[in-house]
């Protein structure tokens, strides 16, 4: 079986986000970029499935500018066998991503697609579900445990009320939640080896997908600054302060 894993280049989890002064987007100039943490978990899961003997090949795919080759190389260093870059400059919305991924899926014929449940930059949480619908195959989202047996996958999902266990027929789309696994560190010798692994670049034209996004983004603004807390002397003052704000 072949596993296809999507990875997105995003602003590092620990970076404090700055909005560009003209509100046209987030300032990424000189900002540390990393693999979307949920996608890193997706890749780790694919590698574990392969190491357990349930898959032969792990292919990582990223949709983005040439800069995302850096994240693909990291994926190769973690242990993926091949990488595909779908070349796009500018932001890619979930439906566009899902359409492009569908074309890659049709080309590669994977038995399983694993994606992060959402990217931490736009927090959309849509691409996996959209791909599943376009592809006409089952989806198992928010996975915290994945077990493969023959033609089915048993997936434990993190849902609002607790955990839900479902069985899906393969091929299927699985999206990962935080507790699924802890991604490995990248070994230095593997970074050297990754330089020799294949990384192919496709264009949206070659895939026959329009890079036009369906949704126009009007404006970006930072959240309003939180007001400073006040110190109260005693319980009475606390009650008064809460009443004054209509909270009691």
């Amino acid at each position: 079986m072949k596993i296809l894993v999507g990875i997105k280049r995003v602003v590092d989890y620990n970076v404090r986000i700055r909005i560009l002064p003209d509100g046209s987007g987030v300032d990424t100039d000189g900002v540390k970029m990393s693999i979307n943490p949920f996608d890193e978990i997706a890749l780790e899961e694919a590698l574990r499935i392969k190491e357990a003997g349930n898959a032969e090949e792990v292919v990582v795919v990223s949709i983005g500018s040439d800069a995302c080759q850096q994240q693909l190389r990291t994926g190769l260093a973690m242990g993926a066998d091949r990488a595909i870059q779908v070349q796009v400059d500018g932001p890619v919305q979930p439906l566009t991503a899902a359409r492009a991924l569908l074309k890659v899926v049709e080309k590669e014929q994977p038995g399983l697609v694993i994606l992060g449940k959402q990217a931490i930059d736009d927090d959309n949480n849509q691409t996996g579900q959209m791909l599943s619908a376009l592809w006409g195959r089952p989806q198992a989202t928010f996975a915290s445990k994945v077990e493969l047996a023959g033609e089915t996958a048993t997936v434990t999902r993190e849902v609002d009320s607790g955990l839900e266990v479902i069985e899906v027929d393969l091929p299927a789309v699985i999206t990962t939640d935080l507790r699924l696994n802890e991604p490995r560190f990248v070994k230095l010798p593997d970074i050297m080896k990754a330089k020799r692994k294949p990384l192919d670049t496709l264009t949206m034209d070659e895939l026959g997908v329009s890079a036009e996004n369906d949704i126009q983004v009007g404006h970006h603004a930072p959240p309003p600054q939180r007001q400073r807390g006040i110190m109260v002397e005693d319980a009475q003052q606390l009650v008064d302060a809460l009443k004054e704000r209509g909270l009691l």
């Binding site: 693999i35 560190f185 010798p189 970074i191």
Partner: peptide, 11 residues
């Protein structure tokens, strides 16, 4: 003999 490198600030 071996080594790893962080790929993100959390690592």
């Amino acid at each position: 003999v071996d080594g790893v490198i962080s790929q993100s600030s959390s690592q």
